[in-house]
Computed example of a mutant assay.
Amino acid sequence: MAVIGYKRVSAKAQHAQLQEDALSAAGCSKVYEDKASGKNAERPGLLAALDYMREGDTLCVWKLDRLGRSTKDVLTTAEVLHAHGIALRILTGTLSGTYSPKGEGKFFFTMMAAFAELERDMIIERTHAGLAAAKAQGRVGGRPSVITEDVLTVAKARKAKGESITAIAKALEVSRATLYRHIG
């Protein structure tokens, strides 16, 4: 009976060291990882973990939202695990412990999965509200544009003379996509 870990971070630039440490402390003999958004259906690390595991094994995750953000997705994964005789252990959060799809345990797990999805939706809502408030105050997020008014004037003049976007981009040391975005 093996304890197999699964960790997931939402962006390629994020690191899962906290999850890694917790899974190691929980005695996971092998850990699978995905670097993808929870809403992303493509999770090769989770699929590999599920393929590797056998009846009697335990899938261990740091927190419920690492398994998936959609209530349906989390419950479907939990049911697949149970159908194959694989336990689900959650290390932290309100639902820490081992998942049992029976009676009160199933009801509690379903409610926690719904709350995890609600939390994700609220984070998205707050993020969008914050971005809208910043935009209303004239602040714009993201990296500063490499296209200044001078560069744009030069680019438009070269384009008017019939020079290709590729040649202009190379000469001005900007990407073709950036030029297309600014001069069409």
Rank of each mutant, 00 (worst) to 15 (best):
K39F: 10
I168M: 02
G105A: 06
A136W: 13
Y32W: 09
A116C: 10
A169Y: 04
F107L: 03
F107P: 00
H82T: 09
A157T: 12
E33R: 04
L47T: 12
C60F: 08
L152G: 06
D57G: 05
E117V: 04
T166G: 14
D34E: 07
Y52K: 10
G68V: 00
T153V: 07
M111F: 14
A114K: 03
S100Y: 10
G142H: 13
L47P: 07
R120D: 11
L88H: 03
D73M: 01
L131E: 13
L91A: 02
E163S: 06
E119M: 10
E119T: 12
S145I: 00
L152D: 11
R89M: 09
R69C: 06
A155E: 07
H128F: 11
T153E: 14
E117S: 09
K170L: 02
G38A: 07
G38K: 07
L47S: 14
G93L: 01
A41Q: 15
V61Q: 03
I124N: 15
Q137N: 14
L81P: 03
T127L: 12
R139F: 15
L64Y: 03
R43K: 11
E33N: 01
E42F: 00
G162F: 05
A83Q: 11
A78R: 06
Y32E: 01
K135S: 09
A132P: 08
L118V: 12
A83M: 09
I124S: 15
K159P: 04
I124W: 13
E125S: 15
I90F: 10
K39T: 12
F107A: 02
A167V: 04
D73T: 06
T166C: 11
A136F: 14
R66I: 02
A36K: 08
G45V: 04
S100C: 06
G130F: 03
T58C: 09
T98P: 06
L88F: 04
E149F: 02
A113Q: 08
A169M: 05
A87L: 02
L75E: 02
A169C: 02
I123Q: 05
H128V: 12
P144A: 01
E42C: 00
K170F: 04
A78M: 08
I147M: 15
F108M: 08
D73P: 04
R69N: 00
E104K: 14
R54E: 13
S145A: 08
V154H: 08
E55M: 08
T92I: 08
L131A: 04
L50A: 07
D121W: 10
K72W: 11
K135E: 11
M53S: 05
G130R: 01
M111A: 09
E119H: 13
L47E: 15
G93N: 00
A114I: 07
Y32C: 00
A78S: 12
Q137A: 15
T77V: 13
S100N: 12
Q137F: 10
A129R: 12
I165S: 04
A41N: 15
G162S: 04
D65I: 00
A136G: 14
I123S: 06
L81I: 02
T77R: 00
H128Y: 09
A160V: 02
D57P: 07
L118K: 13
F115S: 03
L88W: 05
K72Q: 13
D150P: 07
F115M: 14
G142S: 10
S164A: 05
K63R: 13
A155M: 02
Y52F: 15
A136T: 12
A169L: 00
A41H: 14
A114Y: 09
G38M: 06
G142Q: 09
W62Q: 06
D73E: 14
